[in-house]
């Protein structure tokens, strides 16, 4: 049986369709589920292997981005979410979904304390929404989402993407290799908070974190907006070069690797089990 992803929707989340498309393209089963329907039937989480909270503007970012939606999920679904992440499943929070996952305490969840909030994702240092392409380098080698990936050229689009935490939490994140992604300059060197390479001034250039298992990934950039070559900001250049070289461009781009990794994870899990 193909592993199946459930993509949450509703209340101003708005990237559910393209996120579902990404899973589908990677060969996974996928369903888009309104959070109210999921709250009515939380057992559906038992029948899926991947949970994705996509990007968007849930509740208009009022009371802090992701806060109100996280509160809604916390009050209606928390026990089921805990059970879900404790199983051998994958969870992905993208952009607003990242803010929700972190407000829910699904990451970093030190000592498996899912539900405890220790990181904040706050206003960009420019205090302005930033929609632009960035480069991120993969730090965590433990996350199945990022297996085999070293760099990603993907867009961000957020007003509140600045990871903030106290020094103790930062040290633990580093020590436990839970910093999954960092913003870098195009040459691969550290962004060091420098705008626009770091679009938000995030602590330690953090663009995404995981839980201790690496199975929960919360990231601010949008891999689903950089999954096809035609979405890339340098598409016209790549297309022209390919035409001159008499080559065709690959359909997919960096972002798709994340979704393919999810498919791969469950394929190998299956073969592990059957072996």
């Amino acid at each position: 049986m193909t592993a199946k992803a459930l993509v949450v929707a509703g209340y101003g989340l708005n990237c559910e369709e393209e996120t579902a498309q990404a899973f589908s393209y990677a060969g996974l089963g996928v369903v888009i589920r309104h959070v109210n329907d999921l709250a009515d039937n939380p057992k559906e989480l038992e029948s899926v292997q991947i949970l994705a909270i996509p990007g968007g503007f849930s509740y208009g970012d009022d009371t802090g981005s992701g806060n109100a939606f996280a509160q809604k999920m916390r009050l209606t679904l928390m026990d089921h979410l805990k059970k879900f992440v404790e199983r051998d499943t994958l969870t992905l929070g993208i952009c607003n979904g990242c803010q929700i996952a972190i407000n829910l305490g699904l990451a970093p969840a030190f000592d498996k304390k899912y539900g405890e909030r220790v990181v904040a994702v706050s206003h960009n240092l420019t205090a302005r929404y930033q929609c632009r392409w960035v480069d991120v380098s993969v730090q965590s080698s433990t996350s199945p989402w990022l297996s085999g990936i070293t760099r990603l050229h993907v867009p961000v689009a957020h007003g509140e993407g600045r990871f903030m935490m106290d020094d103790g939490v930062l040290a633990t994140l580093r020590h436990q290799k839970q910093i999954a992604l960092r913003y870098v300059k195009p040459d691969g060197s550290a962004a060091n908070g420098e705008f626009p390479f770091s679009p938000n001034g995030s602590t330690d250039d953090i663009a995404g974190i995981t839980d201790e298992t690496g199975r929960v990934l919360a990231l601010m950039p949008h891999p689903e907006r950089g999954m096809f070559t035609s979405q890339r900001d340098d598409y016209a250049t790549l297309k022209d070069a390919a035409r001159r070289a008499g080559k065709s461009l690959p359909d997919t781009a960096d972002g798709m690797d994340i979704f393919k990794n999810a498919a791969h994870y469950f394929e190998t899990a299956k073969s592990r089990k059957s072996a």
Binding site: C15, G55, C131, P155
Partner: peptide
């Protein structure tokens, strides 16, 4: 203005508001 308007949500962007390197 272009940078503060989300121009690639829905995954549909091909040629955006800012072009070239």
């Amino acid at each position: 203005v272009a940078y503060q308007y989300d121009h690639n949500v829905q995954g549909s962007a091909v040629l955006g508001p800012l072009q070239g390197r």
